[in-house]
Design a protein around this nucleic acid. Structure first.
Length: 423
DNA sequence: TCTGGGGTCCTAGGACCC
DNA sequence: TCTGGGGTCCTAGGACCC
């Protein structure tokens, strides 16, 4: 027996959220802008009807905005987060198992409901009544199919916001009409490749041999095919996973042509990243700096640089992060033709995040062991953890020496308190 | 010292998503 | 002139280990 999975998402969520508190926004074109007010990231139906596209730059639609009196908002993520939480509370009244997928989408376990469509309709009107946000619901036996059902329900008013595709005969009817590029997980690149081998619809993708799929794409595409066949490959996960990375990135209006200017931007981003880490009570194990030229001007010389470094030890300290970012930025700096590049986007990415209290109290290798005292300590550690455990050490640093079992095989992690103190 | 197989880990980059 | 930001997952190839 296949388990019914529903996905519920809010229509034009940011716009819907703004409309809750301002009735004059109803039935008029409204858009919400991205972080830096650079482009439109949410549009009301009326704004879509004016031809304003997702991600369209603000400067290209100024005339339209003026001509049609489009109401324009900067994004207010605190508000959207609050509304999102309230919507989830309503979902939880309708099913015990809710997986929050994004700020405006939840997967819901619909196992055990006799009339799933009626249940979804009741949930829909409850969200509308209590929160004031319209939602659409797609139901199927896999997440990918549920997303597809949701999408079809969204585009065809005949379904009144709810489509249950648990029935295979119904899926057989609908999938031939769905363009393959509309399937969750099939982006522009994959779509292009699929078109190249004559696959244009969701039904054709569903029937594609897995071997062929592996040649065209990756394991991700194989999974998508199985999901389209109704086999749930993507698990339903209620517990919110610990985030693995975070980023601070910005585009700059004026190109950065020298290292000092670039590093100023990188420093600002690293500083913000450190604050963000501390706010979440996290430390980072890996820091990456990237920067690149203006991709919208392919006629100009292009360069993109990116370097990563381990944080030793893991840190959320502004000084540590800025220092690491400087090293990365320098290492990624082009060796030649510097004058011809103007960098318009830069970012600092942090990965391998762990909670501060879980931080391993260890250092990574900085230098090969040299001194007699250090060798003695290594022997002690080897005795204690076995010869197979490689131990690396650092010395010549300001901090007291610290030891650490190698992170390579055999894997061994330990707290500082478990290791002998070396001085 | 050389050779090689079977592994893991790491980085850089790509693709996709909201 | 101006054209977002924040995430996840996968892969290729090199480094390294036993």
């Amino acid at each position: 027996m296949k388990r019914p999975i529903a996905i519920s998402d809010s229509a034009n969520f940011y716009v819907s959220a703004e409309r809750i508190f301002d009735p004059t926004l109803k039935n008029v074109p409204v858009i919400v802008l991205s972080n830096n007010d650079g482009c439109a990231v949410a549009r009301s139906d009326e704004a879509k009807a004016l031809g304003i596209r997702m991600g369209e730059p603000l400067h290209l639609i100024r005339d339209k905005i003026a001509a049609h009196g489009v109401r324009v908002f900067s994004s207010n993520y605190t508000l959207y987060g609050d509304i999102s939480r309230r919507v989830v509370e309503v979902y939880e009244d309708f099913t015990p198992n809710v997986e929050i997928y994004s700020i405006d989408e939840c997967f819901l376990d619909f196992t055990g409901f006799k009339d799933r469509v009626a249940h979804a309709r009741a949930m829909r009107s409850e969200v509308l009544q209590r929160i004031g946000v319209p939602v659409r619901v797609g139901i199927a036996s896999s997440k990918t199919l549920a997303k597809c059902a949701n999408d079809v329900a969204k585009k065809n008013p005949i379904f009144a916001g709810v489509l249950d595709m648990m029935d295979e005969a119904l899926a057989d009817l609908i999938l031939p009409m769905v363009p393959v590029g509309d399937i969750w997980g099939v982006g522009r690149q994959t779509q292009k490749k699929l078109h190249g081998v004559g696959i244009h619809t969701a039904a054709e993708l569903r029937d594609m041999p897995l071997r062929q799929a592996r040649a065209v794409g990756t394991v991700v595409l194989e999974r998508t095919i199985l999901e389209l066949q109704g086999e749930a490959c993507l698990s339903f996960d209620e517990v919110e996973p610990q985030r693995k990375g975070m980023a601070v990135t910005r585009s700059s209006g004026t190109p950065m042509t020298d290292f000092d200017t670039l590093f100023q931007a990188i420093t600002a981003h690293a500083t913000r990243a450190a604050e963000k880490l501390r706010r979440h009570g996290l430390v980072a194990g890996t820091l990456t700096v990237f920067y690149h030229t203006n991709r919208h001007r392919p006629d100009r010389p292009q360069y993109s640089g990116s370097r990563s470094t381990r944080m030793m030890p893991m840190s959320s300290d502004t000084f540590d992060l800025v220092e690491a970012a400087r090293r990365c930025a320098q290492a990624a700096w082009p060796k030649a033709h510097v004058g011809t590049f103007g960098f318009t986007k830069a970012g600092v990415l942090l990965d391998d995040l762990v909670r501060l209290e879980d931080r391993p109290q260890t250092l990574f290798d900085v230098a090969r062991p040299k001194s007699a005292a250090l060798m003695t300590a290594l022997d002690q550690v080897n005795d204690r953890f076995g010869k197979k455990t490689m131990v690396l050490a650092s010395e010549g640093m300001q901090r007291p020496w610290q030891l650490r079992a190698d992170h390579r095989s055999p894997r061994y992690t330990t707290r500082m308190s478990d290791l002998p103190v070396v001085r």
